[in-house]
Protein backbone atom coordinates (compact mmCIF):
# COMPACT_ATOMS: atom_id res chain seq x y z
CA UNK A 1 0.00 0.00 0.00
CA UNK A 2 2.68 2.46 1.08
CA UNK A 3 4.82 1.44 -1.89
CA UNK A 4 1.92 1.99 -4.27
CA UNK A 5 1.27 5.48 -2.91
CA UNK A 6 4.90 6.48 -3.23
CA UNK A 7 4.94 5.25 -6.81
CA UNK A 8 1.87 7.30 -7.73
CA UNK A 9 3.47 10.32 -6.07
CA UNK A 10 6.53 9.76 -8.26
CA UNK A 11 4.27 9.61 -11.32
CA UNK A 12 2.71 12.96 -10.41
CA UNK A 13 6.06 14.52 -9.53
CA UNK A 14 8.10 13.39 -12.54
CA UNK A 15 6.59 15.73 -15.17
CA UNK A 16 6.93 18.68 -12.77
CA UNK A 17 10.52 17.73 -12.02
CA UNK A 18 11.54 17.40 -15.67
CA UNK A 19 9.91 20.65 -16.80
CA UNK A 20 11.24 22.56 -13.79
CA UNK A 21 14.76 21.19 -14.32
CA UNK A 22 14.73 22.50 -17.88
CA UNK A 23 13.44 25.89 -16.78
CA UNK A 24 16.08 26.02 -14.04
CA UNK A 25 18.84 25.82 -16.65
CA UNK A 26 17.09 28.46 -18.76
CA UNK A 27 16.76 30.83 -15.80
CA UNK A 28 20.34 30.16 -14.70
CA UNK A 29 21.37 31.52 -18.10
CA UNK A 30 19.41 34.70 -17.34
CA UNK A 31 16.30 34.04 -19.44
CA UNK A 32 12.79 33.85 -18.02
CA UNK A 33 10.68 31.63 -20.27
CA UNK A 34 7.04 31.67 -19.18
CA UNK A 35 6.17 29.42 -22.09
CA UNK A 36 6.69 26.16 -20.17
CA UNK A 37 2.97 25.39 -20.18
CA UNK A 38 2.81 25.88 -23.95
CA UNK A 39 5.90 23.79 -24.70
CA UNK A 40 4.66 21.08 -22.36
CA UNK A 41 1.26 20.77 -24.01
CA UNK A 42 2.91 20.72 -27.45
CA UNK A 43 5.08 17.86 -26.18
CA UNK A 44 2.01 16.08 -24.86
CA UNK A 45 0.07 16.26 -28.12
CA UNK A 46 3.14 15.30 -30.17
CA UNK A 47 4.05 12.41 -27.90
CA UNK A 48 0.50 11.13 -27.91
CA UNK A 49 0.05 11.47 -31.68
CA UNK A 50 3.36 9.94 -32.70
CA UNK A 51 3.02 7.07 -30.25
CA UNK A 52 -0.51 6.42 -31.50
CA UNK A 53 0.40 6.39 -35.20
CA UNK A 54 3.66 4.44 -34.87
CA UNK A 55 2.65 2.29 -31.89
CA UNK A 56 5.96 3.09 -30.21
CA UNK A 57 5.93 5.22 -27.06
CA UNK A 58 9.66 5.83 -27.42
CA UNK A 59 9.24 7.42 -30.84
CA UNK A 60 6.57 9.58 -29.22
CA UNK A 61 8.99 10.65 -26.51
CA UNK A 62 11.71 11.55 -29.00
CA UNK A 63 9.29 13.47 -31.19
CA UNK A 64 8.01 15.37 -28.14
CA UNK A 65 11.53 16.33 -27.11
CA UNK A 66 12.27 17.52 -30.63
CA UNK A 67 9.05 19.52 -30.92
CA UNK A 68 9.57 21.06 -27.47
CA UNK A 69 13.04 22.24 -28.47
CA UNK A 70 11.88 23.56 -31.85
CA UNK A 71 8.91 25.32 -30.31
CA UNK A 72 11.17 27.03 -27.78
CA UNK A 73 13.26 28.33 -30.70
CA UNK A 74 10.36 30.66 -31.50
CA UNK A 75 10.71 32.18 -28.04
CA UNK A 76 14.51 32.27 -28.34
CA UNK A 77 14.41 34.03 -31.69
CA UNK A 78 12.06 36.72 -30.40
CA UNK A 79 13.61 37.37 -27.01
CA UNK A 80 17.29 36.84 -27.85
CA UNK A 81 17.58 38.02 -31.44
CA UNK A 82 14.77 40.56 -31.56
CA UNK A 83 15.09 41.46 -27.84
CA UNK A 84 11.35 41.39 -27.16
CA UNK A 85 9.97 41.48 -23.63
CA UNK A 86 10.55 38.05 -22.12
CA UNK A 87 7.42 37.99 -19.97
CA UNK A 88 5.11 38.89 -22.84
CA UNK A 89 6.84 36.54 -25.28
CA UNK A 90 6.67 33.65 -22.84
CA UNK A 91 2.97 34.26 -22.40
CA UNK A 92 2.61 34.32 -26.18
CA UNK A 93 4.35 30.94 -26.39
CA UNK A 94 1.95 29.49 -23.82
CA UNK A 95 -1.13 30.87 -25.58
CA UNK A 96 0.09 29.69 -28.97
CA UNK A 97 0.99 26.25 -27.62
CA UNK A 98 -2.41 25.79 -25.99
CA UNK A 99 -4.12 26.88 -29.22
CA UNK A 100 -1.99 24.86 -31.62
CA UNK A 101 -2.14 21.70 -29.50
CA UNK A 102 -5.92 21.91 -29.37
CA UNK A 103 -5.99 22.16 -33.14
CA UNK A 104 -3.50 19.34 -33.73
CA UNK A 105 -5.07 17.08 -31.15
CA UNK A 106 -8.67 17.49 -32.25
CA UNK A 107 -8.67 14.11 -33.96
CA UNK A 108 -7.10 12.38 -30.96
CA UNK A 109 -9.85 13.19 -28.47
CA UNK A 110 -11.34 10.04 -26.97
CA UNK A 111 -8.86 7.65 -28.59
CA UNK A 112 -7.12 5.17 -26.29
CA UNK A 113 -3.44 6.02 -26.13
CA UNK A 114 -0.26 4.01 -25.91
CA UNK A 115 1.00 3.51 -22.38
CA UNK A 116 4.68 3.26 -21.72
CA UNK A 117 5.52 0.07 -19.82
CA UNK A 118 7.38 -0.13 -16.54
CA UNK A 119 10.77 -1.61 -15.95
CA UNK A 120 10.98 -5.25 -14.97
CA UNK A 121 14.21 -6.85 -13.81
CA UNK A 122 13.71 -10.44 -12.66
CA UNK A 123 14.30 -10.91 -8.96
CA UNK A 124 15.15 -7.22 -8.25
CA UNK A 125 11.69 -5.87 -9.12
CA UNK A 126 10.12 -8.63 -7.02
CA UNK A 127 11.99 -7.59 -3.88
CA UNK A 128 9.56 -6.81 -1.06
CA UNK A 129 8.84 -3.18 -0.13
CA UNK A 130 11.42 -1.46 -2.35
CA UNK A 131 11.48 -3.65 -5.44
CA UNK A 132 8.89 -1.82 -7.51
CA UNK A 133 9.91 1.53 -6.12
CA UNK A 134 13.55 1.26 -7.12
CA UNK A 135 13.51 -1.21 -9.99
CA UNK A 136 9.96 -1.26 -11.33
CA UNK A 137 8.98 2.23 -12.49
CA UNK A 138 8.62 3.69 -15.95
CA UNK A 139 11.90 4.51 -17.74
CA UNK A 140 11.33 8.27 -17.73
CA UNK A 141 11.27 8.26 -13.94
CA UNK A 142 14.90 7.11 -14.00
CA UNK A 143 15.70 9.68 -16.67
CA UNK A 144 14.26 12.42 -14.44
CA UNK A 145 16.51 11.44 -11.54
CA UNK A 146 19.55 11.25 -13.80
CA UNK A 147 18.57 14.60 -15.28
CA UNK A 148 18.58 16.17 -11.81
CA UNK A 149 21.98 14.74 -11.00
CA UNK A 150 23.29 15.71 -14.42
CA UNK A 151 22.09 19.31 -14.17
CA UNK A 152 23.45 19.65 -10.63
CA UNK A 153 26.82 18.32 -11.79
CA UNK A 154 26.86 20.39 -14.95
CA UNK A 155 26.01 23.67 -13.25
CA UNK A 156 28.35 23.44 -10.28
CA UNK A 157 31.18 21.12 -11.31
CA UNK A 158 31.94 21.88 -14.93
CA UNK A 159 33.47 24.83 -16.72
CA UNK A 160 30.58 25.00 -19.14
CA UNK A 161 28.18 25.20 -16.21
CA UNK A 162 30.18 28.04 -14.69
CA UNK A 163 30.08 29.83 -18.03
CA UNK A 164 26.32 29.41 -18.22
CA UNK A 165 25.86 30.78 -14.71
CA UNK A 166 28.15 33.72 -15.44
CA UNK A 167 25.97 34.59 -18.43
CA UNK A 168 22.95 34.52 -16.16
CA UNK A 169 24.53 36.57 -13.42
CA UNK A 170 26.14 39.30 -15.46
CA UNK A 171 25.74 39.17 -19.20
CA UNK A 172 27.72 42.37 -19.71
CA UNK A 173 30.85 41.03 -18.05
CA UNK A 174 30.44 37.64 -19.69
CA UNK A 175 30.25 39.34 -23.07
CA UNK A 176 33.34 41.40 -22.29
CA UNK A 177 35.21 38.19 -21.51
CA UNK A 178 34.42 36.95 -24.99
CA UNK A 179 31.69 34.52 -23.96
CA UNK A 180 29.00 34.17 -26.62
CA UNK A 181 26.07 35.19 -24.43
CA UNK A 182 23.35 34.86 -27.06
CA UNK A 183 24.56 31.48 -28.34
CA UNK A 184 24.65 30.06 -24.81
CA UNK A 185 21.18 31.38 -24.10
CA UNK A 186 19.85 29.84 -27.31
CA UNK A 187 21.17 26.45 -26.19
CA UNK A 188 19.77 26.88 -22.68
CA UNK A 189 16.32 27.83 -23.97
CA UNK A 190 16.29 24.83 -26.31
CA UNK A 191 17.30 22.55 -23.46
CA UNK A 192 14.39 23.93 -21.47
CA UNK A 193 12.09 23.34 -24.43
CA UNK A 194 13.31 19.76 -24.81
CA UNK A 195 12.69 19.10 -21.11
CA UNK A 196 9.21 20.62 -21.25
CA UNK A 197 8.47 18.49 -24.31
CA UNK A 198 9.60 15.37 -22.46
CA UNK A 199 7.47 16.34 -19.47
CA UNK A 200 4.48 16.73 -21.78
CA UNK A 201 5.12 13.33 -23.35
CA UNK A 202 5.20 11.85 -19.86
CA UNK A 203 1.75 13.27 -19.17
CA UNK A 204 0.28 11.80 -22.34
CA UNK A 205 2.12 8.46 -22.33
CA UNK A 206 2.49 7.55 -18.66
CA UNK A 207 0.36 9.72 -16.37
CA UNK A 208 -2.91 9.50 -18.34
CA UNK A 209 -2.42 7.75 -21.66
CA UNK A 210 -4.95 9.80 -23.57
CA UNK A 211 -5.28 13.23 -25.12
CA UNK A 212 -7.43 15.86 -23.42
CA UNK A 213 -7.29 19.47 -24.58
CA UNK A 214 -5.36 21.57 -22.07
CA UNK A 215 -4.33 18.43 -20.18
CA UNK A 216 -1.21 20.08 -18.78
CA UNK A 217 -3.68 21.92 -16.48
CA UNK A 218 -1.24 24.49 -15.17
CA UNK A 219 1.63 22.07 -14.52
CA UNK A 220 3.95 24.22 -16.59
CA UNK A 221 3.18 27.15 -14.30
CA UNK A 222 3.68 25.02 -11.20
CA UNK A 223 7.06 23.99 -12.65
CA UNK A 224 7.94 27.68 -12.93
CA UNK A 225 6.93 28.19 -9.32
CA UNK A 226 9.07 25.20 -8.31
CA UNK A 227 12.17 26.87 -9.71
CA UNK A 228 11.55 29.89 -7.49
CA UNK A 229 10.66 27.63 -4.57
CA UNK A 230 13.95 25.76 -5.05
CA UNK A 231 15.87 29.05 -5.21
CA UNK A 232 17.45 27.83 -8.47
CA UNK A 233 19.01 24.70 -6.93
CA UNK A 234 18.53 21.35 -8.73
CA UNK A 235 18.12 19.02 -5.74
CA UNK A 236 15.65 21.38 -4.10
CA UNK A 237 13.59 21.23 -7.31
CA UNK A 238 13.43 17.48 -6.82
CA UNK A 239 12.25 17.92 -3.24
CA UNK A 240 9.67 20.50 -4.32
CA UNK A 241 8.37 18.35 -7.17
CA UNK A 242 7.81 15.41 -4.83
CA UNK A 243 6.11 17.68 -2.31
CA UNK A 244 3.69 18.79 -5.03
CA UNK A 245 3.30 15.24 -6.22
CA UNK A 246 2.30 14.32 -2.69
CA UNK A 247 -0.26 17.15 -2.50
CA UNK A 248 -1.75 16.12 -5.85
CA UNK A 249 -2.00 12.44 -4.95
CA UNK A 250 -3.17 13.24 -1.43
CA UNK A 251 -6.10 15.28 -2.71
CA UNK A 252 -6.99 12.56 -5.25
CA UNK A 253 -7.08 9.97 -2.45
CA UNK A 254 -9.16 12.32 -0.31
CA UNK A 255 -11.63 12.68 -3.19
CA UNK A 256 -11.82 8.90 -3.53
CA UNK A 257 -12.51 8.52 0.18
CA UNK A 258 -15.63 10.62 -0.28
CA UNK A 259 -15.02 13.03 2.55
CA UNK A 260 -17.71 15.69 2.86
CA UNK A 261 -15.39 18.28 1.32
CA UNK A 262 -16.23 19.66 -2.13
CA UNK A 263 -14.05 17.92 -4.71
CA UNK A 264 -13.39 21.30 -6.30
CA UNK A 265 -11.74 22.53 -3.11
CA UNK A 266 -9.50 19.47 -3.08
CA UNK A 267 -8.67 19.97 -6.76
CA UNK A 268 -7.69 23.55 -5.96
CA UNK A 269 -5.20 22.43 -3.31
CA UNK A 270 -2.14 22.10 -5.59
CA UNK A 271 -2.72 25.65 -6.87
CA UNK A 272 -3.30 27.04 -3.38
CA UNK A 273 -0.25 25.16 -2.14
CA UNK A 274 1.79 26.81 -4.89
CA UNK A 275 0.73 30.24 -3.67
CA UNK A 276 1.45 29.41 -0.03
CA UNK A 277 4.86 28.00 -0.87
CA UNK A 278 5.76 31.01 -3.02
CA UNK A 279 4.80 33.35 -0.18
CA UNK A 280 6.86 31.41 2.35
CA UNK A 281 9.91 31.41 0.10
CA UNK A 282 9.73 34.96 -1.17
CA UNK A 283 9.15 36.59 2.21
CA UNK A 284 12.77 35.74 2.94
CA UNK A 285 14.19 38.47 0.76
CA UNK A 286 17.84 37.70 1.45
CA UNK A 287 17.54 34.10 0.38
CA UNK A 288 15.87 34.99 -2.89
CA UNK A 289 18.19 37.92 -3.58
CA UNK A 290 21.32 35.80 -3.17
CA UNK A 291 20.17 33.00 -5.42
CA UNK A 292 18.27 34.77 -8.18
CA UNK A 293 20.37 34.97 -11.35
CA UNK A 294 21.12 38.69 -11.44
CA UNK A 295 20.45 39.13 -15.17
CA UNK A 296 17.19 37.16 -15.08
CA UNK A 297 14.72 38.61 -17.56
CA UNK A 298 16.97 41.52 -18.56
CA UNK A 299 17.34 42.21 -22.26
CA UNK A 300 20.80 41.93 -23.75
CA UNK A 301 21.96 43.72 -26.88
CA UNK A 302 25.69 43.30 -27.47
CA UNK A 303 27.57 46.51 -28.18
CA UNK A 304 29.80 45.57 -31.07
Amino acid sequence: MFEAIVITIATAATPLLIAAMGELVVERSGVLNLGVEGMMIMGAVTGFGVALTTGSPWLGVFAAILVGALFSLLFAFLTLTLVTNQVATGLALTLLGLGLSGMIGEGFVGLPGVKMGTLYIPFLTDLPYVGRLVFGQDPIFYISIMLTAGVAYFLFYTKAGLTLRSVGDNHGSAHALGIRVIAIRYLAVMFGGACAGLAGAYLALVYVPQWVEGMSAGRGWIALALVVFASWRPWRVLAGAYLFGAVTIGQLHAQALGWPIPSQLLSALPYLATIVVLVLISRNRRLTMVNTPASLGRPFVPDR
Binding site: L34, V87, G218, W221, L224, A225, V228, Y271, L272, T274, I275, L278, V279, S282, R283, R285, T288
Partner: peptide, 11 residues
Protein backbone atom coordinates in the same frame (compact mmCIF):
# COMPACT_ATOMS: atom_id res chain seq x y z
CA UNK B 1 5.93 39.36 0.82
CA UNK B 2 7.63 40.19 -2.48
CA UNK B 3 5.84 37.22 -4.08
CA UNK B 4 5.95 36.92 -7.86
CA UNK B 5 2.58 38.26 -9.07
CA UNK B 6 2.73 36.39 -12.39
CA UNK B 7 2.54 33.01 -10.72
CA UNK B 8 0.11 33.89 -7.93
CA UNK B 9 -2.36 35.70 -10.19
CA UNK B 10 -2.31 32.77 -12.62
CA UNK B 11 -2.78 30.14 -9.91
Amino acid sequence: FNTNEILTSLM
